[in-house]
């Protein structure tokens, strides 16, 4: 074959597309991407310092059991991390969240797919979902306490009941966005139902599943502490209540710091990179 077939790599994808934003922006004034990132970083550091300063000022004007100073919380946190029971409690809570979340992900996905596949079931279950969503997690915790007593299952159940409806709803909505044209395409290649499910449905549902799961994990992690403070004899929630009962405010702060650190680590080391990897096929919105 001849010339035009060998499209030169110089006219690659980047060169062929003109970003509409770039055409509108006035190049002289528009800040570059790195400029913008630097400014954001600067603002964030500034905000962090401001909070620390406010905290410090507040703590000098209040007794330590009301508001311990940042420096004191830091010291308590360092010694807390050094105790062996810290990692046991941490592991127990994290394990319960993970277990509840895993159950929720599996059940929510399967139910979401089933409800998406059957219109009748979907309409029948819609009100039930609303009811489940309106029940406060504190109420689930109390029920769990009655049903499961002081055991791991109390916390797992509460995490599950909070996370599952979120995942279910997102997967269910996701099944409605499946493109019939793609299903038809798969049919012309005579793909089996299973292949249609894994090659068309699952990739379509993955983005809504991911955002649902992310939300669900966050909620699950928060309510797990409520559940543990009510119905457990171990874990971070239990330690938090113990510290509160003994008015060890600095301990409460130290545990809170732990949780914030955990969430930041999960977000930046796992969720963000995973999201970037899974959805690299999506066109990025410029800016």
């Amino acid at each position: 074959m001849t010339d035009a077939r060998d499209v030169p790599p110089t006219s690659g994808p980047a060169a062929m597309k003109v970003s509409p934003a770039a055409a509108i922006e006035r190049p002289a004034r528009a800040p570059s991407a790195t400029d913008r990132r630097l400014r954001t970083l600067f603002l964030r550091v500034g905000l962090f310092v401001a909070i620390l300063v406010a905290w410090q000022i507040g703590s000098t004007n209040a007794p330590a059991f009301v508001l311990p100073s940042p420096e004191r919380v830091w010291r308590v946190w360092i010694s807390l991390v050094a105790t062996p029971s810290f990692w046991t409690d941490f592991g127990i809570t994290f394990g319960r969240i993970l277990a509840g979340f895993a159950f929720a992900a599996v059940v929510g996905t399967v139910l979401g797919l089933v409800l998406g596949a059957s219109r009748l079931l979907g309409e029948a279950f819609e009100p039930l979902l609303t009811v489940i969503n309106t029940v406060s997690s504190a109420i689930w915790a109390i029920f769990a306490l009655i049903w499961f007593g002081l055991s791991n299952w109390t916390t797992i159940f509460v995490v599950f009941m909070t996370a599952m409806p979120l995942i279910l709803t997102n997967v269910w909505q996701g099944t409605r966005t499946v493109n019939v044209e793609f299903v038809e395409l798969a049919q012309t290649f005579r793909m089996s139902r299973r292949q249609v499910l894994t090659k068309i449905y699952l990739p379509t549902i993955l983005p809504p599943f991911f955002s649902g799961a992310r939300l669900a994990f966050g909620f699950g992690a928060r309510v797990s502490l409520v559940a543990e403070s009510l119905g457990a004899t171990s874990g971070i929630g239990y330690r938090l209540r113990q510290a509160a009962d003994l008015v060890q405010t600095d301990q409460v702060f130290a545990w809170t710091l732990t949780l914030i650190a955990l969430m930041i680590v999960l977000e930046t080391l796992i969720l963000k990179p995973l999201e970037r990897h899974l959805f690299k096929w999506k066109e990025r919105v410029p800016g």
């Binding site: 044209e181 793609f182 395409l185 798969a186 290649f189 005579r190 793909m191 089996s192 292949q195 090659k199 068309i200 990739p203 993955l206 096929w281 999506k282």
Partner: peptide, 20 residues
């Protein structure tokens, strides 16, 4: 319509029918 699956690269799209 081309009906390319947006989550697949060009090569993976070409491979789609072969997977059956």
């Amino acid at each position: 319509e081309d009906r390319l699956l947006p989550w697949r690269t060009a090569a993976q799209n070409v491979a789609f029918g072969l997977e059956a």
